[in-house]
Structure formats: C-alpha cells, structure tokens
Design a protein around this nucleic acid. Structure first.
Lengths: 174, 174
DNA sequence: CCAACCATGTAAGCTGTTACATGATTGA
DNA sequence: TCAATCATGTAACAGCTTACATGGTTGG
C-alpha cells in the first residue's frame, strides 16, 4: 500500500468517483500532494481493483469506483495504527484528512494527540541540536534553516492543540 | 541535476569531504531530507565526478571530494535562479541552507524576499479556497487539514520576515 | 579477539513523473 | 467547426530506498 493508494481508497470511500474525478480532486484541492497526471492514477486504480480493494462499475461514460468491504478493512487498519515518527508530516496529514467523516471520532482525537506529541518531540530535538557542537560550526544561513524547521514544528503543535479544542467543543457535527 | 546532487555539491563546496562524511551530515543534522544510505550517495558522487563537477582525491583511507570550477558554476547558476513556485519548500530551504557562506549576501536577501512572497501567495490562495464551493462540502477534518497548510504557510512568512531582519541587522558576520 | 565503526560499493525494486496517444462530448 | 473538457490509457524514465556485500581499523 503506497501513499497514493491510501489517498485513492480514502477518497473513494468518502464517495464513489471516477478516475477523472479523483484527478480533479488532486488538481483543485490543496489536499494530496500528488500530481494529477493519468500515469499514476489509472494504473493505481487498476491494481486496487485487482487486489480486491476497489470495485469498478461502468456508469455513463467512464467507470466509477466503489470501495469494497476488504478495502474498508485496509483503511481501518491504517487508521488504527499508532502514528509513528517515521511517516512524514505530509503522510500524517493525508491520513488525518481521510479520517474525515469517520464514525469513530476517537480515532481523530487520538491522531491529533499523537501528532501534537510528535511535533513537540521534534521541537525538543531541534532545540537540543541548537545546543550541540555542530550548531556552533554552522553558518548563519544554515542556522536560519534549522530555525525554519523549528517554526514549522511549533506551528504543527499549535495547530494540533487548536484542532483538539475545536473538535472537543463541537458536538458530533456529521 | 537532482536535488541530491545539489545537496552534495553544496556540502562539498563548503568543505571537501568524503562520501562517508557526507552521509554522516545527512544522518546527524536536520538539514537534508535524504537517507544516508550508501546506495544513493556513492553513485551520485561518481556521476558528479564523471560530469566534471567534483574531483576525487585519495586521502588516508577513502576519498575526499573537492568541487571543481565547473561545479561552482553549476551551483552559482542554481543560486541565481529566481525562486519559482514549483520547487517545494524542502527544496527551497535546502537551497537556502547551501547559500551558507556565500560571499554575495544579496543572493540570500533576494531568496528570502522571494520565499516570503511565495508563502504570502500561498496563504492568500488557501484563504481564497476557504471561500469557495468545495470548502463548504468538506468535512470538519478536511477543513482542519487545510488549516494546517495555512498555519505552516503563515509560519514560513513569519520566518522569512524574521530572517531578513536578523540578516539586515547583523553585519557581514562571515 | 570481538564488537563497533570507518568506508565503499552493487543490484533490484518501488513509486511516481513525463510524454505521448486516443477518442468522445460539449459549448461558443 | 473548432477549441476545450471529459475520460482513459501506455511506455520510458528518474530518483531514491532497501538489502546485501566487502574489507579495514580502532577500542575495550
């Protein structure tokens, strides 16, 4: 399961779509960092059908894709996985976005907690780096680049905390 | 010229290093998102030598790499290129970090200006997206994911502005 | 002497991109 | 009718990772 596969599964789960519609999603929304080129999406969809995670259904011109129970299970397993340090922020955020209307709200809350903790750890490790030997030998520019990392990590912490607040104050809105 | 190639050129330009030392840089510093696996670095170094951008020089155990005048020219050309929207933030930041001790301080200032402008444009486009139709149909989670993008873009703006201040107030510190 | 590190390399594969190609349908 | 959009596909490649393999050196 590649990142793109998860993205496609998640989008199709939300609503059956054609390959073309999925491409448009990548093009027109800020979510999903993937190119909308057909060279990636159509082959991936085919593979997902072969693997039994999606079902193709002719509809007007073109095919719509539906998620199968097995596909749902794959997504659920992914959602339930503890958020590791390894997955980059982009991957983590995609996972978060695909949780969208998931009935189990707790998954989202858990995700945000873990994300906030990871970001806090990242902040701490960058601060620790700034106390090390290497830091002293670095040029002004290189140091500023590290400061950039610090700022974005801090922004992640703030966002996650804020998102938790918003979700907790809001009733089950879906 | 791949991102990794630029990274290697820039690091060698700063100081002649062995392939192993370069790997350690990737491992121990937050700069450079690349894996430190030998499978990427050694072949890349070889290609750069063949292309005449680096020179290999036996030294003790292992080889040190030096940048050639031609390699310097390649870097200079890259540095001088206007910062486009296309390059991701990671690529942009790498370029910034590699400017490190560049004698032409103006390049750094130009970069930061362009980066700040790009980030501002990104903020604006995200805000515009939040006024569109798609936004209305999105789930709470998806909206929060977009808000994340907004926050990090804003952090980029803040960082660039701050960096400009720091550099302008500091004399030529190198 | 044995583990850990220094130091380099290759082969296979995964993932996504680029570029090309095709044809139907819709709106001006 | 002519351009734009809908809709799908393939072939070739680029770029990096994983896994494996090798041998020297250093320190406990």
């Amino acid at each position: 399961m590649t990142p793109l596969n998860y993205a496609l599964l998640g989008m199709v789960r939300q609503q059956p779509r054609s390959g073309y519609a999925l491409r448009k999603m990548f093009e027109t929304t800020p979510l999903g960092n993937y190119s909308s080129s057909p060279g990636s999406i159509y082959p991936a969809l085919k593979k997902l059908v072969v693997a039994g995670l999606l079902e193709s259904q002719a509809m007007g011109r073109g095919n719509h894709y539906l998620i199968t129970p097995q596909g749902e299970r794959v997504l659920e397993t992914w959602f339930a996985q503890p958020l590791g340090d390894e997955e980059g922020a982009d991957m983590a955020l995609m996972r978060f976005a695909l949780l969208h209307d998931h009935p189990n709200r707790q998954l989202t809350l858990d995700f945000l907690q873990a994300f906030a903790n990871n970001s806090r750890r990242q902040v701490a490790s960058l601060k620790a780096f700034m106390d090390g030997d290497v830091w002293q030998q670095m040029s002004v520019q290189s140091r500023l680049a590290v400061q950039y990392g610090l700022r974005t990590a801090q922004a992640s912490v703030d966002w996650a905390d804020d998102a938790l607040k918003q979700l907790k104050s809001a009733p089950t809105s879906s």
